[in-house]
Nucleic acid binder design. Structure first.
Length: 424
RNA sequence: GGCCCUAUCGUCUAAUGGUCAGGACAUCGGCUUUUCAAGCCGGUAAUAAGGGUUCGAUUCCCUUUAGGGCUGCCA
């Protein structure tokens, strides 16, 4: 059977992390089986649906690389079709009109027997038909209900596998009734577990960032989010964890999807983001983040790249190379007044010129050589050389290696700051 | 309340009748480094409880407990 799956968000809110995982599993399943992944905007609720949300959803999916293989379908545009099928059920006597006279139409659900969902993730799930009451197909305002529109659309669109959150499990028997009544072939169902917040409640705004845009703004890479979400509720047979979208598609299948809910863990997302940044070349990182890299040279970026957790850390990490002037605390000044510190500064100033020529790599090597020379000729301990130097240069007690600082700060700033320290 | 789903380290998970219960994140310790990160190496840490079935249960069955979902003329 040709695989054809859909992601069917309703534009009543921003693209949610939980929705993205559902979209991702659908997308991955389609890729794995050489099928199609299509998007359907469920905008039948005119009250709550907003264009703004629809655009946010589309933009978010595009950013993540989860585009629809076909032009997105609007559920609201299919109203005539829905009404046609309602008429059909009315004709066959499987549905009846509201006795009160409103446009509402109700479906007669089977009074007895049982309905089984043959779920690809959960296994068989059995419901007693007697537990269901007649369901509304068309509301008194004339619009059709979700459970009805979904069935008609999924069947008409030829959806082979319905992969959605397990919050839809109890809708499924109602939909199965409709498939049967309408004479549609039954698709395969797969209900995937929910994503919970740290308090084990369904992930929502309360737990901080729940919308994809917030992660984007915070400096996460789409690759990291995709990789993380794929691993939430699924693992590849080989146990690999660092995977890109194409590899995920190759490895993904429903039989390894977990049956239990999982808690969203920001720490692991952060780690993955860090890994994905490391995988990027300096050029890519620079090119894709022009705004964040404003004023930051590629050489600086190269030095700080591997310690970035978020893209947004770039300005902070780069700041030590860029600040125009630094301010020392009284304690720091006291420290810089030591004779040994002054000796070090004079030595550095005297030999500073040796550094700045040749390639940047060569400059690093020579800067390190200079540092080593100063240690030797002063006879001081490394700490006695490096610590005051760092304080004099950056007013901070930790940071990037001094060879980088010396080279990237440039002769003028280094000289100025050391001479300034000599004056304390 | 009713119906349904689920249950392995703090977290994500591997192992479906026989493993010292494995890996990853976090955490802790060590190495490295002038420092902080990063990196490398190592440690702590789990089968919810009780009954069965079985020579043998994380694994199969039942009960309890806990968590989650649904219970709209929302989607």
């Amino acid at each position: 059977m040709a695989v054809r799956v859909r992601f069917a968000p309703s534009p009543t809110g921003y693209l949610h992390i939980g929705s993205v995982r559902t979209a991702l599993f659908n997308y991955l399943f389609a890729r794995h089986h050489g099928g199609r992944f299509v998007l359907r905007i469920e905008d039948t609720d005119q009250e709550r649906s907003r264009k703004e949300f629809e655009e946010d959803i589309l933009a978010g999916l595009a950013w993540l690389g989860l585009q629809s293989d076909e032009p997105p379908v609007r559920q609201n545009a299919r109203r005539a079709l829905h009404l046609q099928y309602i008429a059909k059920l009315l004709d066959s006597g499987q549905a009846y009109k509201d006795p009160e006279g409103s446009p509402a139409v109700f479906f007669k659900v089977p009074a007895e027997g049982e309905t089984v969902i043959k779920d690809l993730v959960k296994g068989d799930i059995t419901f007693q038909n007697k537990d269901f009451k007649d369901q509304v197909l068309r509301k008194s305002d004339g619009s059709v209900t979700y459970n009805f529109a979904v069935v008609v659309d999924d069947a008409e669109m030829g959806i082979s596998h319905i992969i959605r959150g397990e919050d839809h499990i109890s809708n499924t028997p109602k939909q199965i009734f409709l498939y049967t009544a309408l004479g549609f072939p039954l698709p395969q169902f797969a209900h995937i577990p929910m994503i919970l917040g740290p308090d084990r409640a369904k992930l929502s705004k309360r737990h901080g960032a729940a919308s994809v845009n917030e992660y984007r703004r915070a400096g996460y890479l789409p690759e990291a989010l995709v990789n993380y979400l794929a691993l939430l509720g699924w693992t590849p047979a080989d146990g690999a964890e660092l995977l890109a979208l194409p590899e995920l598609g190759q490895k993904f299948d429903l039989d390894r999807v977990s049956k239990s809910n999982s808690i969203f863990d920001l720490e692991k997302l952060n780690w993955l983001n860090c890994q994905k940044i490391k995988q990027l070349s300096v050029d890519e990182l620079y090119k894709n983040n022009a705004e964040l890299c404003r004023g930051v040279s590629k050489e600086i970026l190269a030095v700080i790249k591997d310690e970035l957790v978020l893209l947004n850390d770039i300005p902070d990490k780069a700041a030590v190379f860029l600040t125009a002037s630094i301010e020392h605390t009284p304690e720091q000044k006291e420290e810089l007044r030591a004779d040994s510190a002054k000796l070090v500064f004079r030595e550095i100033i005297a030999k500073l010129g040796d550094i700045y020529y040749g390639s940047i790599e060569e400059q690093y090597v020579r800067a390190q050589a200079l540092l080593d020379t100063v240690v030797q000729c002063t006879g001081l301990k490394k700490g006695q050389v490096f610590h005051p130097l760092r304080i004099a240069l950056t007013a901070q007690k930790s940071g990037p290696g001094l060879k980088f600082l010396l080279t990237l700060l440039g002769p003028d700033k280094v000289k100025e700051r050391l001479q300034n320290a000599l004056g304390y």
